[in-house]
Design a protein around this nucleic acid. Structure first.
Lengths: 340, 340
DNA sequence: ATGAAAGCGCTAACAT
DNA sequence: ATGTTAGCGCTTTCAT
């Protein structure tokens, strides 16, 4: 006797009836509760098979107050860095049976707050947020775990690359090529990432390079992380009486802006000017010359963030919060011209 | 008398009690049901204020079988086109109080099916999917609206740019510059977008240009939409005895690959070779020379897709499904060299 | 180890 | 127009 598949999905009670057990037992089997006999477990599992039963996540969530859902708030998913972060977070979550709600804050603390509160209302089990500002205005509550990624917010666990160390490695590399007049295109000092990268520059400038504060200031320009800021900063730096022989840019976009500015001014890269970027966006290897840059292990950041949110064992809170960057050397750097 | 905010959020029944009405009435006020008197409405609203009551979306969903949630499945959120699509879908959804679940299919029909089934289990009200293949293997069910974006799937409503027309406009532009030997770097013919863009090329080649089928075939290369395919295709085309004076590439990545290939071969763009791309990714205006390309109105596609999913009125199914592209002219095209 | 009973917080059908 | 009654489909006491 052939029968068409069930139109309305089967419910737990139907499974219980077919297996001649109580609803509670079915639920216990579903949730891997230890105290169910082999015999009943088998009967229930058979009934589940036969009815092609799938539990209703909504009903389960209402009762258990958990949702197997994570929330992610980023300033703008269009930013390649955040897109890659989102991808790996979604994949890591899916691997453990979690789904991902996504929201863009557009760098507005208000929008961010709204999104976080929506996520809370929906009872996401965990929240990953790349903060719009230096602080989180949303009331996160107690029931939802939170991890901040990339930018720092006081008082909240954060997983991110070590931007200070990353910047140091870039500037030290330039120094190892024998550059002495190394300039810095700094990012927004309102963002921890902007501050940290600048701090890395200053550490090497002051230490290894022995530059005075005055020299550093003369060779530093502040701006946004974008192309235009990089271009304009480079123009300003390259018209100095004593122009730098190398530039450390705080982002790849800035670095590419600087690259184009140099080319337009007839200054060949890397022959007369070396440039290092930060982030290793896909574009970095497509420009000419290909950009030497500091790569952030985005996948690792994503995986750690998800692990931090999903571990039920609070026993080992010693997940490493700072992950290592590495310098990827391409064609945009060379020794300075005309060594004595 | 000052009182701290409520620890446990207030429930609908508490609101009902405070307003001295029944739970049903509170629910009706919440849902804007017409038949509630001004008086009771006011009392309920006051109670809601006083208790800072917020309805529980989960409970509401369980009962009403709707979730004010949309699902989005893309091959890879890291692709700038999909990222921008996701952004605008999320924004359009948020504007109407909907949230967005995101999944990457990684171009795998299996992963796609799994994600769609998860979304269905969670009762998303609508699903937008950029299909991994030429067909949707998931059982979409009846309760969830679906719209396919970009790539086509037979039998499902689709919102997308008119790729045929877009390709035509690109090739016609090249023709208007007096190019006659126009080559085509075609995309995967397994994807409707690849086929459509190629079709646009052929229409103009056959019509306006009067090229024979043989000529067209000699000047066409097939490949993936990526940089490497574009580069290799261009190398092949440019070593022809009679090389093209212009190339229509089916994607910006291909076009940029072709650009670099030409430069490496000592063929200046646009002086000796014109190139047009497709998509207008952010990178397109950052390469040198800036790329002339066909821009897809991604935001419009996103907004229409959301409208299509969210309209309760089935009366007017005549939302335009094909949206217009437009050519953005930059620096990568010029008249062919040495006109007779 | 299992069953029975009691909800999670809301909406909708049915009264009136 | 409003109240009353039943659940949505599951998990979790509380018994036994």
């Amino acid at each position: 006797v052939s029968r068409a598949g069930p139109q309305r999905p089967a419910s737990l009670r139907e499974v219980a009836k077919l297996a001649s057990v109580s609803a509670g037992t079915v639920s216990r089997v579903l949730n891997g509760h230890p105290s169910v006999s082999r015999e009943l477990t088998a009967r229930v599992e058979k009934a589940i098979q036969d009815l092609d039963y799938r539990p209703d996540p909504l009903a389960r969530s209402l009762r258990s107050r958990t949702t197997t859902t994570l929330g992610l708030v980023v300033p703008d998913i269009t930013n390649p860095f955040f897109a890659e972060l989102a991808k790996h977070i979604e994949l890591a979550a899916a691997e453990r049976g979690y789904q991902l709600l996504l929201a863009n804050s557009l760098d507005s603390p208000d929008v961010e707050r709204q999104s976080i509160e929506n996520f809370r209302a929906r009872r996401v089990d965990g929240l990953v947020v790349v903060p719009a500002g230096d602080t989180l205005t949303a009331d996160v509550g107690e029931e939802m775990r939170v991890v901040v990624v990339d930018r720092q917010v006081p008082g909240l666990p954060r997983i991110a690359a070590d931007h200070v160390l990353g910047a140091r490695s870039a500037v030290e590399y330039l120094a190892s090529l024998d550059h002495r007049r190394i300039a810095c295109i700094a990012g927004p000092q309102t963002l921890s990432t902007g501050r940290d990268r600048y701090e890395g520059y200053r550490q090497v400038a002051t230490g290894l390079l022995g530059m005075t504060t005055g020299e550093q200031e003369r060779l530093t320009r502040f701006g946004a992380f974008d192309y235009v800021s990089g271009r304009d900063a480079a123009r300003s730096l390259l018209t100095l009486p004593e122009p730098p022989t190398a530039i450390f840019a705080s982002s790849d976009q800035q670095a590419i802006g600087a690259l184009h500015a140099a080319v337009q001014m007839g200054i060949p890269v890397p022959d007369r000017l070396s440039i290092v970027g930060f982030d290793d966006v896909p574009l970095a290897e497509l420009v000419h010359p290909a950009l030497t840059t500091v790569s952030q292990p985005i996948k690792e950041i994503a995986v750690r963030a998800v692990s931090l949110l999903l571990r039920d064992d609070d026993a080992d809170p010693r997940i490493r919060l700072l992950v290592d960057t590495h310098l990827v050397v391409r064609d945009s750097c060379a020794p300075p011209p005309s060594l004595p």
